[in-house]
């Protein structure tokens, strides 16, 4: 990866999140990313049927548009590698993606899926946003969120530990006093 490359990675994980893929399929967003110094946009679009057609010629999965390299694919087993090599991650609000990004120290904008019936994902995004670790935005507000995004204002997330729970469980079972 060239040192000057600044990649934005959009990920929906194993879910289907058409609204997010549609929002990032935007020339306006692409111009904004370029303005903010990003050079590459990679979209992991999941198993939805919508494929980017505004930022790439229909049917093409890689290319360069508005001076930004663009690429999309359905899924990859190595999402973690994409996350760690990015300068910004725009993610669905699944806890795996969120904490993978936070613990990698990569700036994060989280977009909770408004279509999820029991939408506790909004809860997690809002909680971590209130703590200053990420920015949470509805799909419709993504463009504004990117425009106002300032990674230097985010606070680093300190990785948790299971040891406290394990101590309680061991005690409960009588393995430790």
């Amino acid at each position: 990866m060239p040192a000057a490359e600044r990649q934005v990675f959009v990920t929906v994980g194993t879910t289907k999140f058409e609204a997010l893929v549609e929002r990032v399929d935007s020339l306006e967003l692409l111009r904004l990313l370029k303005e903010k110094g990003y050079t590459k946009l990679v979209i992991q679009k999941g198993n939805g049927t919508y494929s980017p057609s505004n930022i790439l010629p229909k049917g093409q999965t890689t290319g360069t548009t508005e001076g930004v390299q663009v690429e999309y694919f359905d899924y990859s087993p190595s999402l973690a590698a994409y996350i760690t090599s990015s300068a910004l991650v725009i993610s669905h609000a699944g806890s795996g993606s969120i904490f993978e990004t936070l613990t990698a120290g990569v700036p994060l904008i989280v977009v909770p899926n408004p279509l999820l019936m029991d939408n506790h994902q909004v809860e997690l995004g809002e909680q971590l946003a209130a703590m200053g670790h990420l920015v949470s935005a509805a799909p419709d507000a993504l463009l504004d969120a990117v425009r106002g995004f300032d990674a230097s204002k985010l606070l680093p997330y300190e990785k948790g530990s299971a040891s406290g729970m394990v101590r309680h469980i061991d005690r409960q079972m009588g393995f430790v006093p």
Partner: peptide, 28 residues
């Protein structure tokens, strides 16, 4: 006690499974 405890773990899929296996990573 010192005798191992027979353990039944329910893996609830997706993020539930991921969290459960993380917890077990730290268990004796």
């Amino acid at each position: 006690r010192t005798k191992p405890a027979k353990t039944l773990v329910v893996l609830g899929s997706g993020g539930h499974t991921a969290e459960m296996l993380m917890l077990m990573d730290s268990m004796p």
